[in-house]
């Protein structure tokens, strides 16, 4: 078993308890998509592409009063150590649903009746915390597509490792740690839009964990903001 934290409180990948992995985000990386983003979150490498609003197929899914949001989270067969079957797993279907429900509070689709906005997420390489990193990219891709949004959605996990509450669980910590709590947050509206937990926390640890996760989301938000600003408002053309 890996030692998850040393006596100085340094984690197995060299981070402090309140430190995020390195994050880089690029906006507008795909030509065909209406909006897109690429994120590297630690060793995670994830692409998000948004199409729409556009015609709904199959037709019966269309809503006369509002646009709808669809979301597909998918992992490439080569994204993990053992080859993953390319067919969508039950885990991927559940994650697609929670990601959709994390983005729904942000998007405003009432002006697009009978249409759909499709969010496609491809995890090219996975290393723990993919749903949060995927959400970070998807939220930016939606803004890039010009879909009206109440706020950005920023996501980051917190958890419990070696009896301590830590920010941004990596793959080893997810496998061998004590708890993993992915959180998505709208930083300006101060609303939690995704929250899950695997693992055992006392009530006081729970409070600390939510707060730690929210703090992480705020750090991620600054990077999302910079990525959007870089694409739209830098003077290089």
């Amino acid at each position: 078993m890996t030692q998850l934290m040393n006596e100085n409180g340094i984690r197995c990948d060299g981070r402090r308890v309140d430190q995020l992995r390195n994050i880089s985000i690029k906006v507008g990386v795909l030509k065909n998509a209406d909006g897109s983003a690429y994120i590297e979150f630690g060793k995670n490498k994830i692409l998000a592409g948004v199409f729409g609003p556009r015609d709904v197929h199959p037709k019966h899914m269309a809503n006369q009063d509002s646009g709808i949001l669809r979301c597909r989270y998918h992992m490439s067969p080569f994204s993990v150590t053992e080859r993953k079957n390319p067919a969508p797993s039950r885990r991927e279907i559940e994650i697609s649903k929670v990601i959709k429900e994390a983005l729904l509070p942000a998007v405003i689709l009432k002006d697009f009746p009978r249409t759909v906005v499709d969010v496609f997420i491809e995890v090219l390489q996975a290393d723990g915390g993919t749903r949060c990193a995927a959400l970070d990219a998807a939220s930016i891709a939606l803004a890039d597509a010009g879909i009206p949004m109440r706020d950005l959605v920023s996501a980051c996990a917190a958890g419990k490792v070696a009896d301590q509450i830590v920010l941004d669980i990596n793959n080893e910590e997810d496998q061998e740690g004590q708890a993993d709590m992915p959180i998505a947050y709208m930083p300006n509206l101060e609303k939690i839009t995704l929250m899950q937990l695997d693992g055992i926390l006392s009530p006081s640890e729970y409070k600390k964990c939510v707060q730690t996760g929210i703090n992480g989301c705020k750090l991620v938000y600054e990077m999302q903001r910079k990525a959007l600003m870089d694409k739209y408002f830098t003077n290089e053309t």
Binding site: K97, V98, E101, A102, L104, P105, M181, M186, L189, E190, K191, I192, T193, L194, M195, Q196, L197, D198, G199, I200, L201, S202, P203, Y206, K207, V210, Q211, I214
Partner: peptide, 28 residues
Amino acid sequence: TNTEGNICAIQKGGIDGFTLEQVIRCSE
């Protein structure tokens, strides 16, 4: 929750979100 009074699994769903105060209240 478990017998010992810990919080062990969570799932959020639905089209909107919760505030920090609300998720703490929910745990109680």
